[in-house]
């Protein structure tokens, strides 16, 4: 079976899940495993802990809740919030809502792609940035908008975007040197 990631060995390569401390999830599992219908909540907590959902964690959730692994994988891949791959230190959530689109989100995406050499869903080689397109951040009056680490940047222009990214890079370098 080669569809939908049925080939396990391929998946292992795809998911970088070495050295995952599965016990970190035990408290969450203990709290929710007897409440039916908690799968999404458990996966959300797991993502909070690990930053993404490694395959081993999905398996561990399946083992401990009695939900079939296929279903856990099915739910994890259905919702856009869940990531099966780790993200960089700075997660750029670029709004692709209607208002942002009308006000030039495409140009902002091009600027990010050009500056960081990554496309939607990818992470830079230095693991500093991940770019994620999102549906709508609900700050339409400030469009185009992006959110980086919980901070929203509005009224973007390609130039302003590049400046923000370079500042983040510089701050990161400064903290590392310090």
């Amino acid at each position: 079976m080669k569809c939908c990631g049925g080939n396990n060995s391929v998946l292992k390569v795809q998911f970088k899940d070495d050295d995952i401390d599965l016990t970190a999830l035990d408290a969450t599992l203990e709290k929710y495993k007897s409440t039916k219908g908690s799968l999404i909540t458990i996966l959300q907590k797991a993502q909070e802990i690990y930053g993404y959902l490694p395959l081993s964690v999905l398996n561990y959730v399946a083992q401990n809740t009695g939900v079939k692994p296929a279903k856990v994988y099915g739910v994890a891949t259905f919702y856009t919030q869940f990531r099966l791959e780790p993200v960089g230190e700075n997660l750029i959530m670029l709004c692709q809502g209607t208002a942002c689109h009308v006000n030039g989100a495409k140009g902002i995406e091009e600027a990010i792609t050009e500056e960081l050499n990554i496309k939607d869903g990818q992470t830079t080689e230095d693991n500093l940035f991940t770019l994620n397109n999102v549906a709508c951040l609900g700050c339409c009056s400030l469009s185009p908008v992006m959110m980086i680490n919980g901070e929203t940047y509005g009224h973007l222009t390609p130039k302003k975007t590049v400046e923000i990214l370079r500042n983040l890079k510089k701050n990161d370098l400064d903290t590392k040197e310090a």
Binding site: Q96, G97, T98, A99, A135, C136, G138, C139, C140
Partner: peptide, 11 residues
């Protein structure tokens, strides 16, 4: 679950 990209009254 205000999903319409461009509406934010519920928020």
């Amino acid at each position: 679950d205000e999903g319409d990209p461009g509406a934010f009254m519920d928020r």
